[in-house]
Design a protein around this nucleic acid. Structure first.
Lengths: 346, 346
DNA sequence: ATAACTTATTAAACTTCTTTAATAAGTACC
DNA sequence: GGTACTTATTAAAGAAGTTTAATAAGTTAT
């Protein structure tokens, strides 16, 4: 229901304890180190509750007493932080030619990274083997986050045409049953746009489009009102198919552009295609920002796109156009998803 | 933050009372009449709490004891319902040539409807006067919902080019201060898509596009993941501007179509334009459903659009295409927004 | 019509968070 | 170095929901 008639998202006293722990975890993650008073202020929870809960978390080893903070004229307060060794998380980026592994501690720090051979063509067995290695090395591993180049639905592959061995593979149930891990799987472009969204750290719910013009054909990750758009058939962001001219869709247009000999003309045709796609997004979901890969476009290109775009839609409605580092945003997304999964614990 | 690290949407014991009342209201609105036991079951709240809260709501006149329910072998339970006279809401549809008023009681029933002269060209004074009439006639009026043909941002007009007198007019502050009403303002297409979304009564969060090819140029109302898309500059759904061919955008394409003499050819060009727009939405946000106005298209047209669309994007990703009654959905949206506003009370 | 049985309602005990008061542990100044 | 002042921490009282037990009000069947 759009209409704000609540259905059942209710909070009873029993859940409050866990919610309070979540608030504490999230705050400690943000600020790294804090006193009980500071936690009470920044969470809005009463001091005694914070004190009691934090003591419990200290007893269970989830947080550590780090010492005493600065005095502001009276007794010096004890400071606490998340215990980095409380839990470990594994973030995995699966690509055709390699698998990138990131090992994160409970504070969100990267305590290990490794690149192993690609598993997408080989099949799940090799992936299981690779994960097994890390699991053996880090017994406190509790969460697993996978970024994959394909459509996933609730942990299960729903469309990944190039990799037959993973057809319909359910990452979540497979690894949650086999190892006792909390498993998350996300599409690569969605992960990237999540990473970018998190990195700009805006708390109001924005709409963004992260555009990628890769070798495997272009694609986009979309966030609307702060939520990832997965689409009715997990086909969202497949912008290759957007019809933009009498005879060509977006992919055909950029393919045609790159086929042109004259490099100026080729570039100009590419710019035209992108400008049109920008106009399409502006006149439909009207995002705040569209992000391009810095390896593909320069800031100068953006000016050109903006100018051309302004001839298609009223300029004041054009989104902010920015370039960003795809790989970095992707990994940041994986990182944040993994941390989020660890901190949502219990 | 996309990453599920909570920021501050927290519930403390003080707010629980109000949340419980909300649950009770929402449930009573849905089921019309209920016993305490039934309410406890359907809300998941404990019986004593329901009992206490409902007694208070009965004392304050918010609910009424309607009698005794059926026995299932023991003492017959008392049944309660919302008191229709507890509060009144006014839903207003503002158009160029007329203003439609719907008066709703607290049960959501329409207890009056009236059409008065249009106010958009005349200016706010006339609207104030019209609202004043209803306010005098229904002293228990507490909420006001306005549907307007233009972009609004948090109760304030942000773009309504055809009606100068309402430029930047802040409906919300104006009427909340002048009369003591809770005021909501929503764009007409957004209201319509809300109405449709509510009418299909799905609880999972869908994505929909409601397409209107009106006299004032086409427009669309968009819901993604169950939330209305307003856009970064409140320009979302302005599909006129979507570039679809070498030289034409959507509006120019349908204008060109209607300019063609041969009616078959004209229709076919229109279908082509719509099919392309369907492909655009499919390859971007990939909605579950696209809704067309039944006054503009027939079910037969939809078949044609689907066929043509399937040549642009993989058919299995095409949304469900349906026709619906625009006016009805619009009014249902206004209705539901008004009821939602009444029930969210306090 | 009354006894036995069901079910609704009320009451009491318990849990959990908040608010307010009391105590303990430092600082700073004379 | 002791006294007055600050601030952290602990303890007690209050508020609000849940769970469990007790009571009241009807039904059903003999």
């Amino acid at each position: 229901m759009v209409v704000k008639i609540i259905k059942r998202p209710f909070v009873n006293p029993k859940m409050m304890g866990e919610m309070i722990r979540q608030q504490i975890r999230a705050t400690l993650y943000r600020v790294k180190e804090s006193t009980k008073v500071e936690l009470a202020q920044s969470t809005g929870i009463s001091f005694p509750t914070i004190s009691k809960t934090l003591d419990e978390m200290n007893d269970s080893g989830e947080v550590l007493l780090t010492g005493l903070g600065l005095s502001s004229g009276g007794r010096r307060p004890r400071t606490y932080k998340l215990n980095p060794d409380y839990m470990t998380g594994l973030a995995v980026c699966l690509e055709k030619d390699f698998s990138s592994y990131l090992i994160l501690n409970y504070e969100g720090d990267i305590i290990g990274r490794e690149t192993l051979p690609g598993v997408l063509q080989a099949g799940p067995e090799l992936l299981t083997e690779q994960i097994g290695i890390f699991l053996a090395r880090f017994p406190s591993m509790r969460v697993l986050t996978l970024g994959v180049p394909g459509a996933v639905n609730n942990g299960r592959v729903s469309h990944m045409p190039d990799y037959e061995r993973f057809k319909d593979f359910n990452f979540r149930t497979f690894y949650e049953e086999r190892f006792s891990l909390r498993v998350q799987v996300e599409n690569d472009m969605n992960t990237t746009v999540i990473g970018y969204y998190d990195s700009i750290g805006s708390d109001d719910s924005l709409s963004l489009v992260y555009l990628y013009l890769g070798k495997n054909g272009p694609g986009a990750g979309i966030i609307v009102n702060g939520h990832v758009v997965r689409g009715g058939t997990f086909f969202s962001g497949e912008v290759s198919y957007v019809p933009l001219s009498d005879t060509q869709n977006f992919m055909q247009m950029i393919d045609a552009a790159s086929a042109i000999q004259d490099s100026n003309q080729s570039r100009s045709k590419l710019m035209e295609a992108i400008s049109r796609l920008v106009a399409v997004f502006t006149a439909t979901i009207n995002p705040h920002i569209i992000i391009f890969c810095s390896t593909e476009l320069t800031n100068l290109d953006l000016v050109q796109i903006r100018n051309r775009g302004a001839s298609l839609v009223p300029e004041e409605n054009l989104p902010k156009l920015v370039v960003s580092d795809w790989k970095q945003d992707y990994f940041h997304g994986l990182h944040q998803l993994t941390v989020g999964s660890m901190l949502a614990a219990d």
